[in-house]
Simulated assay, not measured.
Amino acid sequence: MNNFNNILCVVTTGEVSKPTLERAISLAENNQAQLTVVGVMQPVAEGITMPDGARISTDLQTMMRTECLRALQTLTEPYQQRLRIQHEVLVGTGFLEIIRTVLRNGHDLLIKPAENPSFVDRLFGSDDMHLLRKCPCPVWLTQSEEKSNYRCILAAIDFNPGMPDTAERSLNQQILDLSSSLALSDFAALHLVHVWDAPGEATVRSWSNNPDEAATCYVEGERSRHERGFDRLCEELKSHLGTEVYEYLSPQLHLRRGAASTVIPETAKQLQADMVVMGTVARTGIAGLLIGNTAETILEQLRCAVLAIKPPGFISPVRSTE
Protein backbone atom coordinates (compact mmCIF):
# COMPACT_ATOMS: atom_id res chain seq x y z
CA MET A 1 0.00 0.00 0.00
CA ASN A 2 1.83 3.07 -1.25
CA ASN A 3 -0.75 5.82 -1.23
CA PHE A 4 0.45 8.19 1.49
CA ASN A 5 3.60 10.21 2.08
CA ASN A 6 2.81 12.41 5.08
CA ILE A 7 0.47 10.97 7.72
CA LEU A 8 -1.03 12.88 10.65
CA CYS A 9 -2.20 10.78 13.61
CA VAL A 10 -4.28 12.44 16.33
CA VAL A 11 -4.27 10.65 19.68
CA THR A 12 -5.15 11.10 23.30
CA THR A 13 -2.58 10.13 25.89
CA GLY A 14 -3.81 6.73 26.98
CA GLU A 15 -4.39 3.11 26.02
CA VAL A 16 -7.54 4.04 24.06
CA SER A 17 -5.39 5.52 21.29
CA LYS A 18 -2.89 2.65 21.10
CA PRO A 19 -4.69 0.63 18.35
CA THR A 20 -5.02 3.77 16.21
CA LEU A 21 -1.37 4.63 16.75
CA GLU A 22 -0.32 1.10 15.81
CA ARG A 23 -2.39 1.33 12.63
CA ALA A 24 -0.70 4.67 11.80
CA ILE A 25 2.74 3.16 12.48
CA SER A 26 1.98 0.25 10.15
CA LEU A 27 0.72 2.61 7.43
CA ALA A 28 3.81 4.80 7.71
CA GLU A 29 6.11 1.76 7.46
CA ASN A 30 4.26 0.22 4.51
CA ASN A 31 4.13 3.53 2.66
CA GLN A 32 7.62 4.69 3.72
CA ALA A 33 5.81 7.82 4.86
CA GLN A 34 6.52 10.53 7.36
CA LEU A 35 4.43 10.26 10.54
CA THR A 36 3.46 13.07 12.88
CA VAL A 37 1.63 12.25 16.11
CA VAL A 38 -0.28 15.10 17.71
CA GLY A 39 -2.31 15.74 20.82
CA VAL A 40 -4.88 18.50 21.15
CA MET A 41 -5.52 20.54 24.29
CA GLN A 42 -7.81 23.41 25.10
CA PRO A 43 -6.22 26.81 25.87
CA VAL A 44 -6.07 27.87 29.50
CA ALA A 45 -8.46 30.74 30.20
CA GLU A 46 -6.87 34.14 30.43
CA GLY A 47 -6.47 35.71 33.83
CA ILE A 48 -6.47 32.61 36.04
CA THR A 49 -5.10 33.59 39.42
CA MET A 50 -3.91 31.85 42.57
CA PRO A 51 -5.07 32.85 46.07
CA ASP A 52 -2.06 35.15 46.44
CA GLY A 53 -3.15 37.04 43.34
CA ALA A 54 -0.39 35.79 41.02
CA ARG A 55 -1.51 35.36 37.40
CA ILE A 56 -0.56 31.89 36.22
CA SER A 57 -2.41 31.28 32.95
CA THR A 58 0.70 31.60 30.73
CA ASP A 59 2.89 29.42 32.95
CA LEU A 60 0.12 26.86 33.39
CA GLN A 61 -0.40 26.63 29.63
CA THR A 62 3.31 26.04 29.09
CA MET A 63 3.44 23.37 31.79
CA MET A 64 0.39 21.58 30.41
CA ARG A 65 1.78 21.66 26.89
CA THR A 66 5.11 20.28 28.07
CA GLU A 67 3.37 17.51 29.97
CA CYS A 68 1.23 16.62 26.94
CA LEU A 69 4.32 16.47 24.72
CA ARG A 70 6.07 14.23 27.22
CA ALA A 71 3.05 11.91 27.29
CA LEU A 72 3.03 11.71 23.48
CA GLN A 73 6.72 10.80 23.47
CA THR A 74 6.11 8.12 26.10
CA LEU A 75 3.21 6.71 24.07
CA THR A 76 5.31 6.43 20.91
CA GLU A 77 8.58 5.36 22.58
CA PRO A 78 8.12 1.62 21.88
CA TYR A 79 7.97 2.39 18.13
CA GLN A 80 10.82 4.88 17.83
CA GLN A 81 13.31 2.27 16.65
CA ARG A 82 10.98 1.25 13.82
CA LEU A 83 10.64 4.72 12.31
CA ARG A 84 11.19 8.37 13.06
CA ILE A 85 8.10 9.95 14.61
CA GLN A 86 7.50 13.67 14.96
CA HIS A 87 5.39 15.03 17.82
CA GLU A 88 3.34 18.16 18.20
CA VAL A 89 0.86 19.56 20.71
CA LEU A 90 -1.96 21.65 19.26
CA VAL A 91 -3.68 24.22 21.44
CA GLY A 92 -7.14 25.48 20.57
CA THR A 93 -10.38 24.19 19.06
CA GLY A 94 -9.67 20.61 18.04
CA PHE A 95 -10.91 20.36 14.48
CA LEU A 96 -9.65 23.84 13.55
CA GLU A 97 -6.11 23.20 14.76
CA ILE A 98 -6.02 19.76 13.14
CA ILE A 99 -7.13 21.11 9.75
CA ARG A 100 -4.67 24.04 10.01
CA THR A 101 -1.89 21.53 10.65
CA VAL A 102 -2.96 19.50 7.60
CA LEU A 103 -2.93 22.65 5.46
CA ARG A 104 0.39 23.98 6.76
CA ASN A 105 2.30 20.71 6.54
CA GLY A 106 0.71 19.10 3.49
CA HIS A 107 -0.51 15.93 5.23
CA ASP A 108 -2.21 13.52 2.83
CA LEU A 109 -3.98 11.38 5.46
CA LEU A 110 -5.53 12.14 8.83
CA ILE A 111 -6.15 9.18 11.14
CA LYS A 112 -7.74 9.44 14.58
CA PRO A 113 -10.07 7.54 16.93
CA ALA A 114 -13.74 8.37 16.50
CA GLU A 115 -15.17 10.42 19.34
CA ASN A 116 -17.11 8.88 22.21
CA PRO A 117 -18.21 5.66 20.49
CA SER A 118 -19.51 4.14 23.75
CA PHE A 119 -21.42 7.07 25.17
CA VAL A 120 -23.45 8.64 22.37
CA ASP A 121 -25.97 7.26 19.92
CA ARG A 122 -24.05 8.35 16.86
CA LEU A 123 -20.50 7.14 16.48
CA PHE A 124 -19.05 10.37 15.16
CA GLY A 125 -18.94 13.36 17.49
CA SER A 126 -18.93 17.01 16.58
CA ASP A 127 -15.20 17.41 15.98
CA ASP A 128 -15.26 14.35 13.74
CA MET A 129 -18.16 15.69 11.67
CA HIS A 130 -16.31 19.00 11.25
CA LEU A 131 -13.26 17.08 10.04
CA LEU A 132 -15.33 15.01 7.64
CA ARG A 133 -16.88 18.18 6.25
CA LYS A 134 -13.85 20.44 6.09
CA CYS A 135 -10.55 18.55 6.16
CA PRO A 136 -9.04 18.54 2.64
CA CYS A 137 -7.21 15.21 2.93
CA PRO A 138 -8.74 11.73 3.44
CA VAL A 139 -10.01 11.25 7.01
CA TRP A 140 -9.69 7.80 8.60
CA LEU A 141 -11.76 7.44 11.78
CA THR A 142 -11.04 4.26 13.71
CA GLN A 143 -13.43 2.36 15.94
CA SER A 144 -13.05 1.94 19.68
CA GLU A 145 -11.68 -1.60 19.38
CA GLU A 146 -9.57 -1.14 16.27
CA LYS A 147 -8.32 -4.38 14.73
CA SER A 148 -4.72 -4.75 13.67
CA ASN A 149 -6.03 -6.26 10.43
CA TYR A 150 -9.43 -5.78 8.86
CA ARG A 151 -11.34 -8.81 7.62
CA CYS A 152 -13.96 -7.05 5.51
CA ILE A 153 -13.75 -3.72 3.67
CA LEU A 154 -16.72 -2.13 1.91
CA ALA A 155 -16.14 0.52 -0.77
CA ALA A 156 -19.17 2.63 -1.75
CA ILE A 157 -19.11 3.70 -5.40
CA ASP A 158 -21.42 6.44 -6.64
CA PHE A 159 -21.81 7.49 -10.27
CA ASN A 160 -24.36 8.67 -12.82
CA PRO A 161 -24.05 6.34 -15.84
CA GLY A 162 -25.72 8.82 -18.16
CA MET A 163 -23.65 11.87 -17.28
CA PRO A 164 -19.90 11.13 -17.11
CA ASP A 165 -18.11 13.53 -14.80
CA THR A 166 -14.33 13.94 -14.52
CA ALA A 167 -14.40 14.76 -10.80
CA GLU A 168 -16.74 11.84 -10.08
CA ARG A 169 -14.51 9.48 -12.06
CA SER A 170 -11.40 10.66 -10.21
CA LEU A 171 -13.09 10.26 -6.83
CA ASN A 172 -14.22 6.72 -7.65
CA GLN A 173 -10.75 5.79 -8.83
CA GLN A 174 -9.31 7.02 -5.54
CA ILE A 175 -11.91 5.06 -3.55
CA LEU A 176 -11.13 1.89 -5.51
CA ASP A 177 -7.39 2.41 -5.26
CA LEU A 178 -7.38 2.96 -1.49
CA SER A 179 -9.87 0.22 -0.67
CA SER A 180 -8.11 -2.38 -2.84
CA SER A 181 -4.68 -1.43 -1.50
CA LEU A 182 -5.87 -1.75 2.09
CA ALA A 183 -7.66 -5.04 1.38
CA LEU A 184 -4.48 -6.45 -0.14
CA SER A 185 -2.28 -5.29 2.75
CA ASP A 186 -4.70 -6.64 5.38
CA PHE A 187 -5.63 -9.83 3.43
CA ALA A 188 -9.22 -8.65 3.76
CA ALA A 189 -12.30 -9.39 1.67
CA LEU A 190 -13.20 -6.44 -0.54
CA HIS A 191 -16.85 -5.65 -1.29
CA LEU A 192 -17.88 -2.96 -3.76
CA VAL A 193 -21.41 -1.56 -3.48
CA HIS A 194 -23.24 0.73 -5.88
CA VAL A 195 -26.76 1.88 -5.07
CA TRP A 196 -29.16 2.72 -7.89
CA ASP A 197 -32.81 3.62 -8.23
CA ALA A 198 -35.48 4.25 -10.88
CA PRO A 199 -36.98 7.58 -9.82
CA GLY A 200 -39.27 7.87 -12.83
CA GLU A 201 -41.12 4.60 -12.28
CA ALA A 202 -44.32 6.19 -10.94
CA THR A 203 -44.40 8.68 -13.81
CA VAL A 204 -43.90 5.94 -16.41
CA ARG A 205 -46.80 4.01 -14.90
CA SER A 206 -49.09 7.02 -14.94
CA TRP A 207 -48.39 7.83 -18.61
CA SER A 208 -48.52 4.31 -20.07
CA ASN A 209 -51.44 2.29 -21.40
CA ASN A 210 -49.70 -0.81 -20.02
CA PRO A 211 -48.31 0.41 -16.67
CA ASP A 212 -46.79 -2.85 -15.46
CA GLU A 213 -44.97 -3.64 -18.69
CA ALA A 214 -43.75 -0.06 -19.13
CA ALA A 215 -42.57 0.17 -15.54
CA THR A 216 -40.75 -3.18 -15.75
CA CYS A 217 -39.03 -2.13 -18.96
CA TYR A 218 -38.00 1.23 -17.50
CA VAL A 219 -36.69 -0.23 -14.22
CA GLU A 220 -34.75 -2.96 -16.03
CA GLY A 221 -33.25 -0.35 -18.34
CA GLU A 222 -32.06 1.70 -15.36
CA ARG A 223 -30.64 -1.38 -13.66
CA SER A 224 -28.78 -2.36 -16.82
CA ARG A 225 -27.30 1.13 -17.26
CA HIS A 226 -25.95 1.10 -13.70
CA GLU A 227 -24.70 -2.47 -14.07
CA ARG A 228 -22.74 -1.54 -17.19
CA GLY A 229 -21.25 1.48 -15.43
CA PHE A 230 -20.31 -0.66 -12.44
CA ASP A 231 -18.68 -3.23 -14.73
CA ARG A 232 -16.65 -0.50 -16.46
CA LEU A 233 -15.27 0.69 -13.13
CA CYS A 234 -14.30 -2.85 -12.20
CA GLU A 235 -12.55 -3.30 -15.54
CA GLU A 236 -10.60 -0.11 -14.86
CA LEU A 237 -9.63 -1.46 -11.44
CA LYS A 238 -8.50 -4.74 -13.06
CA SER A 239 -6.41 -2.79 -15.56
CA HIS A 240 -4.87 -0.73 -12.73
CA LEU A 241 -4.06 -3.71 -10.48
CA GLY A 242 -3.30 -6.25 -13.18
CA THR A 243 -5.38 -9.34 -13.88
CA GLU A 244 -3.45 -11.61 -11.49
CA VAL A 245 -3.77 -9.25 -8.51
CA TYR A 246 -7.41 -8.48 -9.32
CA GLU A 247 -8.30 -12.16 -9.46
CA TYR A 248 -6.46 -12.75 -6.19
CA LEU A 249 -8.42 -9.89 -4.59
CA SER A 250 -11.69 -11.09 -6.18
CA PRO A 251 -13.84 -8.11 -5.12
CA GLN A 252 -17.49 -9.00 -4.59
CA LEU A 253 -19.95 -6.67 -6.32
CA HIS A 254 -23.24 -5.53 -4.82
CA LEU A 255 -25.62 -3.65 -7.14
CA ARG A 256 -28.53 -2.72 -4.91
CA ARG A 257 -31.64 -0.69 -5.53
CA GLY A 258 -32.81 1.87 -3.01
CA ALA A 259 -31.61 4.98 -1.21
CA ALA A 260 -27.86 5.13 -0.57
CA SER A 261 -28.49 6.67 2.86
CA THR A 262 -30.09 3.42 4.06
CA VAL A 263 -28.66 0.74 1.73
CA ILE A 264 -24.98 1.43 2.43
CA PRO A 265 -25.26 1.27 6.26
CA GLU A 266 -27.47 -1.82 5.96
CA THR A 267 -24.96 -3.51 3.65
CA ALA A 268 -22.08 -2.65 5.99
CA LYS A 269 -24.00 -4.19 8.88
CA GLN A 270 -24.94 -7.33 6.92
CA LEU A 271 -21.35 -7.90 5.84
CA GLN A 272 -19.98 -7.01 9.29
CA ALA A 273 -17.63 -4.62 7.56
CA ASP A 274 -14.64 -3.42 9.55
CA MET A 275 -14.28 -0.34 7.34
CA VAL A 276 -16.32 1.64 4.83
CA VAL A 277 -14.42 3.65 2.20
CA MET A 278 -16.55 6.34 0.62
CA GLY A 279 -16.49 9.74 -0.98
CA THR A 280 -18.13 12.83 0.40
CA VAL A 281 -20.55 14.18 -2.16
CA ALA A 282 -20.07 17.87 -2.86
CA ARG A 283 -19.47 20.33 -5.65
CA THR A 284 -15.82 21.22 -5.94
CA GLY A 285 -13.78 24.38 -5.78
CA ILE A 286 -16.11 26.23 -3.43
CA ALA A 287 -14.72 27.31 -0.08
CA GLY A 288 -16.96 26.58 2.89
CA LEU A 289 -18.91 23.82 1.19
CA LEU A 290 -20.36 21.24 3.57
CA ILE A 291 -20.40 17.49 3.16
CA GLY A 292 -23.32 16.21 1.08
CA ASN A 293 -26.52 15.34 2.94
CA THR A 294 -26.49 11.72 1.77
CA ALA A 295 -22.89 11.17 2.85
CA GLU A 296 -23.51 12.74 6.23
CA THR A 297 -26.60 10.59 6.81
CA ILE A 298 -24.60 7.46 5.95
CA LEU A 299 -21.71 8.40 8.23
CA GLU A 300 -24.02 8.98 11.18
CA GLN A 301 -25.33 5.39 10.92
CA LEU A 302 -22.06 3.49 10.54
CA ARG A 303 -20.60 1.56 13.46
CA CYS A 304 -17.24 0.71 11.93
CA ALA A 305 -14.08 2.48 10.83
CA VAL A 306 -14.49 4.97 7.98
CA LEU A 307 -12.12 6.30 5.36
CA ALA A 308 -13.81 9.37 3.87
CA ILE A 309 -12.40 11.02 0.75
CA LYS A 310 -13.09 14.50 -0.59
CA PRO A 311 -13.77 15.04 -4.28
CA PRO A 312 -10.89 16.52 -6.31
CA GLY A 313 -10.65 20.29 -6.18
CA PHE A 314 -12.23 20.56 -2.72
CA ILE A 315 -11.20 23.74 -0.89
CA SER A 316 -11.39 23.74 2.89
CA PRO A 317 -13.17 26.73 4.46
CA VAL A 318 -10.52 26.66 7.21
CA ARG A 319 -7.45 28.84 6.66
CA SER A 320 -3.98 27.63 7.58
CA THR A 321 -3.56 30.62 9.93
CA GLU A 322 -6.05 32.47 12.08
Rank of each mutant, 00 (worst) to 15 (best):
V11K: 11
E15A: 12
V16E: 13
A24K: 07
A24R: 00
L27F: 10
N30I: 00
N30F: 02
A33S: 07
Q34C: 01
Q34E: 02
G39T: 05
P43A: 08
M50K: 05
P51L: 08
T58R: 10
L69W: 15
R70C: 07
T76Y: 11
E77G: 07
E77W: 01
I98E: 04
L103Q: 05
R104D: 02
R104K: 12
N105I: 04
R122M: 14
R122L: 08
H130E: 12
H130W: 09
Q143V: 13
S148F: 06
N149L: 12
F159D: 00
F159I: 01
P161M: 02
T166Y: 14
R169G: 06
S170H: 09
L171M: 11
Q174M: 13
L178G: 05
F187D: 10
A189V: 14
V193I: 15
E201N: 04
V204F: 00
S206Y: 06
W207A: 15
T216Q: 15
Y218Q: 04
G221N: 03
R223M: 11
R228E: 12
G229K: 05
R232W: 14
E235D: 10
E235Y: 11
Q252W: 15
L253E: 11
L255V: 07
R257N: 09
T280S: 08
A282D: 05
T294I: 14
A295D: 11
Q301F: 14
R303F: 11
P317S: 01
